[in-house]
């Protein structure tokens, strides 16, 4: 059984928007976006949002709930994702390596079928919504493996159907251009101009301790049960070069330096890591404010 860590950072967009509104921000770039549900929130509240990440499935989800303004999946389309289509040839062994380790045989077959069905969708928006919905199924299964008696047995296609249908509720337009890109931090920062740059930097070496629910879904999306997310991070700014402490600080300094065109930089951190980021931000910005919510939720705001 796989251990499900409690390391996921809390990003509260309803709080973030309070911070951003203090400075009249109406557009934001987040180059470490991760699962972009917070960008969906900001978009829903009228902000133009642009996100970037190195994991492709995060970007696909962003295509579904950030960049996508109107495309949803209708019932018939969802039905064609969650079940094996007659006459279609599937690589049902694609995730066989996970069988008996993380999932049952039936679950592995479904993962293969869903992978092929989702890859066949023609719209980026629909693909993103399906990727998000099916990710919830993966999370459910992994959790159920830990709590077999506490959770309901739900047939895979039924579970997938309900989760994918649910994604429709997050699709909306804010009449602004919103985007996501699969790119390293500096590329995302350089590609946009916005009122604010929001940074929730990954902890040092975080990709080596990534949550199974994150790396496993990238492996699923890539269609390779043996996929290692170090592939995605290897040549990135915060990847191999940030293994040691000084390299991490240098990487962060280069991010702040690249952000000089942004009027505002907001770094979300914790009390524990405040001292790590504050001097770096002071080097890059004249006016610094610290907004302390809790020990695990600090915002460092740097203005020119």
């Amino acid at each position: 059984m796989i251990e499900l860590h409690e390391r996921t950072r809390r990003i509260s967009p309803s709080r973030l928007i309070e911070v951003l509104r203090r400075y009249d921000v109406s557009s934001v770039v987040d180059p470490f976006m991760g699962l972009p549900t917070h960008l969906n929130y900001l978009k829903r509240h009228g902000m133009a949002v642009h996100g970037g990440d190195l994991l492709d499935w995060f970007v696909r989800v962003g295509e579904g709930i950030v960049a996508n303004d109107q495309t949803v999946l209708r019932d018939s389309e969802v039905a064609e994702i969650v079940e094996m289509l007659p006459g279609k040839i599937y690589a049902i062994d694609r995730f066989k390596a996970w069988e008996g380790v993380f999932f049952s045989e039936e679950q592995c077959i479904y993962l293969g079928v869903w992978h092929d069905n989702v890859r066949g969708l023609r719209s980026d928006g629909q693909t993103g919504l399906a990727v998000l919905g099916l990710w919830h199924v993966l999370c459910y299964w992994l959790l159920k493996a830990q709590f077999p008696d506490d959770m309901q047995d739900v047939p895979p296609s039924e579970l997938a159907w309900s989760y994918i249908r649910q994604t429709e509720q997050w699709v909306m337009t804010n009449l602004r251009h919103n985007s996501v890109r699969n790119a390293d931090v500096l590329a995302t920062i350089g590609a946009h101009s916005a009122d604010a740059l929001f940074l929730a930097p990954p902890a040092r070496n975080s990709f080596r301790n990534a949550d199974a629910r994150i790396w496993m879904w990238e492996a699923w999306w890539q269609g390779d049960a043996y996929y290692n997310i170090e592939h995605a991070y290897r040549n990135s700014l915060f990847g191999a070069r940030s293994v040691e402490e000084h390299a991490y600080a240098r990487a962060m300094a280069s991010v702040l330096s690249a952000a000089q065109n942004y009027p505002l930089i907001v770094i979300q951190t914790t009390e524990q890591h405040l001292a790590e980021f504050e001097p770096l931000l002071r080097d890059a910005r004249t006016h610094i404010e610290t907004i302390a919510i809790h020990s695990d939720e600090y915002y460092l705001v740097g203005r020119r």
């Binding site: 509260s12 967009p13 309803s14 999370c139």
Partner: peptide, 10 residues
């Protein structure tokens, strides 16, 4: 599971 509101925390 991250499908709630307002923040979709999970």
């Amino acid at each position: 599971d991250g499908t709630g509101y307002p923040d979709q925390l999970r």
